[in-house]
Amino acid sequence: MLTQFSIWALLDSLAEGAKWTVALSLIAFVCGGIAGLVVLFARVSGKRALTVLSKAYIEVFQGTPLLMQLFIIFFGLSMLGVDVSAWLAAAVGLTLFTSAYLAEIWRGCVEAVPKGQWEASASLALNYREQMRHVVLPQALRIAIAPTVGFLVQVVKSTAVASIIGFTELTKTGSMLANATFQPFLIFGLVAIAYFLLCYPLSLYARHLETKYHAAR
């Protein structure tokens, strides 16, 4: 059986799947990051309605499995007559999921900036937006870099869930190959290595950034 699949053919297919894992991860990073910023600003705005809304948003996406979120987007929307492809459902689901987590991570970073920084900048007559832009966010950003990149590793691994709604990324490619070759151990071993190769550089980068920004205070 294996004779039909040379190791190079296997690797080639897995690489094709990995490409979609990377694409999905990138979309989740970028769109999730932008949406996360919006949620963050709502969350720390101090305005009651915005705080409640953003809190609810974060709780919903943190308190339910990513898989359920994908199911609801994928099956729920098609029941409502909106035709959603697996690709779109995965991209939207991961974006929402990522935005909720990033907003919460970043909220912690904003709140880690000492109260004295708010008071000093307020005393200098800066308004809320100016305080955020010139004093609080630059400091929060330094604190945020390492945990953010660290969370992105989680996002890369979370894209595997998209395989369940039929999106052909790395994991889905792996299961199809495993079914065809009857070599699940080999195939999923390769899949695991591929995930590791994607994630490990990110982890290293997170550590590097942590040292770098720690040193530059």
Binding site: G116, A120, S121, S123, L124, A125, N127, Q139
Partner: peptide
Amino acid sequence: DLRTLRQKVGMVFQQFNLFPH
């Protein structure tokens, strides 16, 4: 008008509160 008021009143704190970045 807090913004106008605060331009007339400077403040120095116990903990300095300089912007470290």
